[in-house]
Design a protein around this nucleic acid. Structure first.
Lengths: 235, 235
DNA sequence: TAGATTGTTAATCGATTAACAATC
DNA sequence: TAGATTGTTAATCGATTAACAATC
């Protein structure tokens, strides 16, 4: 492992090997920075940005340090350029093509979600098993796509050059859909169905699960109901 | 399934002090166990259950060990009773009352979500700022609730004895809604709006954020596109 | 008994925090 | 210069893994 002379196009420890926990926080920083930028703010200190993101300033600085040395000592960070750098690290510079599978009420809601178009995400396709839905338009006005048959999933992925698949089907259908997405070449999947999806290595699956989240909240609800004794027990 | 004689309602290090990471996994175990039970399976080993849940068997056993000694060496775990015990730990024995704030397409989809009624969660109320929605029914057929004015949020919380608030409003409205939920006594919030919510200590907020998840996937997409050099660089 | 599998310990790994030298 | 704030190090904390004695 050599530094010495002629470090060739040095990558500042960056982009490679970002800890997962850091990657999960970068979008939060990015969003808050965009809000600050829109409000016209020029610079921000790690302390202020951190509290807006609800992390400690030390953690924020450490996270950012993986991307390089982006701040100015004694001053802080330039809001716009920091947002830009984080955007680059996240790959928001390239538009990503989204395909939604399953257009029940959730699928429809996701297709119409404003925040989707927001950051370089483009809805390029939608498929469903229900013949009645096929041919109908979904998505934001002006950017609608036509629902196609799930039988054409393979074709749709190819034609639209889809990158990310969103599974919004019933639980029973999800694994089958997932298999077909992977077979069609999709490597990034966002799963809204309440099942644990099995995928080959190299496929990135993230899950969003209402029921799981509610159960975690229920646990805390319960624990809250149990703890009315404030450490007064000795006689 | 008793050991020794008259173990005096012993709480086995349980329920208190479960690590957060464990709490987040218990609902997954619970769901998979319910699926196995429905399929008629009597017992399951930590190895089989763990692989169905995509965790290691050591981690699964460690997680379960916080709840007590629930398995039988040489045999495994009884599916039904393990599901029951996890359900108790999560507090799924008591029904939880859900209030949804914001009935755009996402709010409607959530209200109609089957998995909600599933595990002891009951939709008890829905409020929105849009006068056109007020008075309309939402939710699963047979368990509908009537949308009321967001101005009545306080009253609705009291009348319905709501425990958990789901925020499905636009980003701009979310913090205000959150403040009002907290003021009305809600201590558990599930936030679908793309903002970082500020709450006083003692309030549990969980967030579900499509845009954040997509950005994390985008990061991995990008990294995948960069790594075509398979460790062949020495001359 | 022999084989299987748990519950638990100790070792490892990764993520967070506290503190401070560097430097604007 | 004096005050502020970063980038980084070392210490801490928490979560995961590997291994195995206990025991069905």
């Amino acid at each position: 492992m050599s530094h010495s002379i002629l470090a060739p196009a040095r990558v500042p420890a960056s982009s490679r090997g970002l800890p997962d926990a850091t990657v999960a926080r970068l979008p939060v920083y990015h969003r808050v920075l965009c809000t600050l930028a829109q409000a016209g703010q020029q610079t921000v200190s790690s302390g202020d940005l951190a509290s807006a993101c609800q992390v400690t300033s030390a953690l924020l600085r450490k996270d950012l340090s993986y991307l390089g040395s982006l701040g100015t000592r004694g001053v802080g960070y330039d809001v716009a350029s920091l947002a830009y750098r984080i955007g680059c690290a996240l790959g928001l510079s390239h538009p990503r093509h989204i395909l939604i599978v399953g257009l029940g009420s959730l699928g429809h809601a996701l297709a119409g979600y404003a925040g989707l178009a927001d950051r370089g995400f483009v809805l390029v396709g939608a498929v469903d098993a229900n013949p009645e839905l096929i041919g109908t338009p979904v998505g934001r006005p002006g950017q609608e796509v036509t629902v196609r048959s799930i039988g054409d999933l393979d074709v749709v992925v190819r034609e639209t050059d889809a990158h990310i698949g969103i599974i919004a089907t019933p639980a029973e259908a999800a694994q089958g859909v997932c298999d077909r997405l992977v077979a069609a070449g999709i490597r990034s999947i966002l799963n809204f169905a309440p099942v644990v999806l099995a995928t080959p290595a190299g496929v990135e699956v993230r899950k969003v699960d209402l029921s799981l989240e509610l159960q975690i909240l229920a646990f805390h609800e319960q624990r809250r109901g149990e703890e009315p004794l404030p450490a007064v027990m000795r006689a």
